[in-house]
Structure formats: structure tokens, C-alpha cells
Amino acid sequence: MKIALMDSGIGLLAAAAAVRRLRPDAELVLSSDPGSMPWGPRTPEDITALALDVARAAAAHRPDALIVACNTASVHALPALRAELEPALPVIGTVPAIKPAAAGGGSVAIWATPATTGSPYQRGLIGDFGGTAEVTEVPCPGLADALEHGDEAGIDRAVAAAAALTPRDVRAVVLGCTHYELVAARIRDAVQRPDGPPLALHGSAGAVAAQALRRIGADPAPGAEPSAGLTVLQAGRPAALPGAALTYAEGRLLAAAVPTR
């Protein structure tokens, strides 16, 4: 079994680690193009072109499924990716987990990139799935870039700034960028109020990993013997797992499980 994941940068680590936990015997292909980051401020046409290039590089390795582990690419490029690659290659997009976060009502915050915050796409999801919840959109300028480069001080500043914009009575936070899941615990610590309700964080990594397995008719087997490799591609060329990836638990999990090639 071979599962490919694509993103602009290392935001794909959370979903890749989720796949690894569900199927440690699956071979992974991680395809990205960090030199073209950030994708958010680009036009939909540019994002689609970049996403197609990254996806084609992954598809050349003949995976059984492709996870688009990027909210921005899923918003703008998913139809084009599916039109080109399916049905031969199942393509699984990433959608912010607004529906489960809003299910309990109350105060919900969506942390996302400035380009996504307030976008028609996100507003549409809130309208469709927000229910009775009071949803606050929280822009997180600089957070994805800081995470991409392992910039600890930059991460701290961006998380603190976003936490200051988050309602004090928030019950749930939706992590609306795949990069953010890499520091979920730090986000929880910054937002959880000592006198507030227990905070729930809602990412997408586990859901997209499970959906990828469903699309190819595979069952989870977390006890399987690790026996496959990890292929890393940057701009279509073989590369090592970026050094910044190893600053996160998900990156260390992938690096430790099997040899990288």
C-alpha cells in the first residue's frame, strides 16, 4: 500500500503521521514545493497550477491514493486535481472541521490564514455547518510561515496574537490550516482559560487519513509491522525530510519509523 500526500510545505506532516499510525506498513510519498510558499496570497489560477505540479510529482510514484493535505489547495485546486487524476487515483481533500466543532453549540473559533479568514469559502462552511454555534473567525498572520521554518519565537508571537483575538468563553477551536496541527498543544495552552470550559481542538489529519483508507478499501491496522519507506519530494525532485520537520513530533515519528529515500 502506498499513500501520497501533498502540500505547499510541511503542513502535510500531521496527516502523514496519522496515516502512519493507522497503517505503519504503508509506504508514504510526501510531495511539496516550499520554494513557492506561501500559496494563500496567490491567485486561484496560480494555486491550481502549483498544486497540479506537486500532485503530478506524487502521482508519478503510482500511489494508491493522494491526500491534499492543504486547506488552500483543497479550496482552489481540488476540482482540477480530481478532473486530471481520478478515477485512476483517488484524491482526498482537506476541509476545516467546522461541523463537528459546532455540533455542541456555544462559542467556536476558527484559526486560519489571513487569506482564508473571511473568505467566501469559509463563510459558506460556517453557514452550512455552523448551526447554533457562535463562530468567530481568527486570522493567524505569520503562523504557517513560522511553523514551516521551525521559528520558535515566531510561532510564540503568532499563537499569542491569535489567542488574544479568540473569545474568552470559546469552547472549541478549529485548526483551519494543516500546519497548525503541528503545535496543537501550544495552541491549547495559549487559549484555555483557567476559569473556562475545557477546550476542544478540531483538526483534519485523522479524518483525511481514515478517508484515504476507506477510498482504497483498506482497514486500519495500527499493529502492522512497519515495512515500507518514506519518499520525500520537493518541486518534484527527491529530497531529505526538511530539518524543520524534525522539530515536531509528527516529523520525528516519520523519520524514526523507516529509512528515508
Rank of each mutant, 00 (worst) to 15 (best):
L52K: 04
G93P: 13
T72S: 01
A60I: 03
A60G: 12
A69K: 13
R62L: 02
L66W: 04
V91Q: 09
A83Q: 15
A83K: 14
A101N: 13
E86K: 10
T94W: 07
T72A: 04
A49G: 09
A51R: 00
A69C: 09
A60K: 12
A101E: 09
V68W: 00
V75A: 12
A65Y: 07
P96G: 13
A65G: 12
C70I: 06
R56V: 02
T48G: 08
L85W: 00
R56G: 07
P100Y: 13
P87F: 08
K99Y: 09
A49M: 06
A73N: 08
H76L: 03
V91E: 02
L89C: 03
A83I: 02
P100A: 11
V95L: 14
P87Y: 03
A60N: 04
A51V: 00
A65F: 11
N71C: 06
H61T: 14
P90E: 06
G93Y: 02
T94C: 12
I67Q: 03
C70W: 02
K99R: 15
L85E: 01
V91T: 08
E86I: 04
L52N: 09
P90M: 10
T48H: 05
L81T: 01
H76Y: 14
A102V: 13
H76N: 06
D53L: 04
E86H: 11
L50V: 09
P63W: 03
L78M: 15
P96D: 08
V54I: 15
H76W: 12
A77G: 08
A55F: 10
L66F: 06
V68G: 00
A55Y: 12
A58C: 11
I67L: 15
A59Y: 02
P87K: 08
A58V: 10
A97N: 10
A88D: 13
D53R: 15
L50W: 13
P63N: 02
P79R: 01
L66C: 10
R82Q: 09
A77L: 04
E86G: 12
H61S: 09
P63T: 06
E84H: 08
D64P: 11
I67W: 08
I98N: 01
I67G: 05
R62C: 04
L52H: 08
V75K: 08
V95T: 12
P79W: 04
R56N: 11
A59S: 07
D53H: 04
A83G: 11
E86D: 10
V54F: 02
A77V: 03
A51F: 00
A49F: 06
C70N: 07
I98T: 01
T94S: 14
I67P: 11
V68S: 01
A57I: 10
T94E: 03
A59M: 01
V68D: 00
A65W: 07
A97C: 14
H61W: 11
P90N: 10
L85I: 05
A58N: 09
I92S: 11
D64L: 05
N71L: 01
T94N: 07
A101F: 13
A80Y: 00
P87C: 06
A65H: 08
V54K: 01
C70S: 15
A97Q: 12
A57D: 12
A51I: 00
H76S: 04
E84A: 15
V75D: 02
L78Q: 05
A51N: 02
L52E: 13
C70E: 06
L66G: 09
P96K: 14
T72P: 07
R56E: 13
L66K: 09
P79C: 07
G93C: 12
A80N: 01
